[in-house]
């Protein structure tokens, strides 16, 4: 009997010791998992800053953020979609659409009407996707893949296959969204930052945001808790298309002319930024703040590589390595081992 007690005591002690060391390990792992991307970002910035002083010069930093703004604004919307457990591969093609439409309408009905009209049309497309994925419960990957193609067709039809240009490029106030600046800060940055704050608050602090996480984390359980899943998913796609319309506005305003394919391929870059920020494709995790970090990392990589004299396309390959490392370390921290258990 005494023997049993003895082993029990040792066991409890062992467990306690084990738990303590486990806890600290867990804590480190947890910090890495939660803030790993931030740590990597800081290290990265320091590294490049040491390599080239110009990298952290204010005008360079502003320049990078400004050129990341279009991608960034789109990534904000896609973050909602991804957290709700879905994908949106149509944003690139949709951005081309918005850009072409607003440029075309600019000369026909004037900018003051063109902008709301373009937002309306883009939101309509977003609503169609939201209806298909949310209410009809169709697979989002395929729906948005189909929409990628369909919207591209729509854009080509709208433009007649031609590039779109504003006739009077000098005399329009429309250029303010892409080229203007307030107190020395470029307007695209202000739009990006403002939208990030608003959407970040919505996601983190409002009941709707909570429901987005619930639907993405476990859609069935959310339904069983009275959350109207279809409506939440629908709203996420609306948010995404709103962001796309904003990105299209910036794009159009910056160049005042555009090809049909201006957004082509951006869907995957946007997704890369969101994933880099640590959102899981399974849904239920990610934040707007992390997505912004993801966007900035992509932007600064591109810029840093250019500054050290490398071509723009080197960033593709660097991005590849960084995305895989980021996601890998994230899941490695969660599962507690570096290598996958797959035999």
């Amino acid at each position: 009997m005494s023997e049993t007690t003895d082993t029990g005591g040792t066991r409890a002690q062992g467990a306690r010791e084990g738990r303590m060391s486990g806890l600290s390990k867990e804590k480190i792992g947890g910090i890495l998992a939660r803030q790993g991307i931030l740590v990597a970002f800081v290290l990265f910035m320091v590294g490049f800053a040491l390599a080239n002083q110009r990298f952290i010069a204010p005008d360079n930093v502003l320049g990078v953020i400004r050129s990341s703004a279009i991608l960034g604004v789109m990534a904000l919307g896609v973050t909602f979609v991804v957290i709700s457990g879905n994908l949106d591969l149509s944003v690139g093609s949709m951005m081309s659409f918005s850009t072409i439409v607003v440029l075309d309408l600019h000369d026909q009905i004037g900018p003051a009407l063109a902008i709301p009209a373009m937002f309306g049309l883009t939101l309509l497309i977003g609503a169609v996707i939201g209806f298909l994925v949310g209410y009809l419960r169709l697979n989002s990957l395929i729906v948005t893949l189909g929409m990628l193609s369909a919207i591209h067709g729509l854009t080509l039809t709208w433009s007649g296959g031609q590039n779109m240009d504003i006739a009077d490029k000098e005399g329009t106030w429309f250029s303010v969204f892409g080229q203007g600046s307030v107190l020395g800060i470029p307007v695209p940055i202000l739009i990006f930052a403002g939208l990030a704050v608003v959407l970040g608050l919505i996601l983190a602090k409002t009941p709707f945001g909570r429901k987005v996480y619930a639907v993405g984390g476990n859609g069935v359980a959310a339904t069983f808790s009275g959350v109207r899943r279809a409506r939440v998913v629908f709203m996420c796609y609306l948010a995404s298309s709103f962001c796309v319309a904003t990105a299209g506005l910036i794009q159009a305003s910056r160049s005042l002319g555009s090809q049909n394919t201006v957004g082509q391929g951006m869907e995957l870059e946007v997704l890369a930024a969101v994933i880099l920020g640590g959102a899981s494709l399974l849904g239920g995790s990610g934040t707007i703040f992390k997505t912004v970090i993801g966007v900035l990392i992509l932007g600064f990589i591109k810029n840093g590589l250019l500054l050290v004299g490398l071509q723009f396309y080197v960033q593709y390959t660097v991005t590849w390595v960084i995305i895989i490392l980021a996601v890998w370390l994230d899941i490695a921290a969660k599962r507690g081992r570096l290598w996958s258990p797959i035999a």
Binding site: L145, G146, S149, A150, H152
Partner: peptide, 9 residues
């Protein structure tokens, strides 16, 4: 493009 997209859906 339009038709293929719609058919897929």
């Amino acid at each position: 493009n339009l038709v293929i997209g719609l058919i897929l859906i």
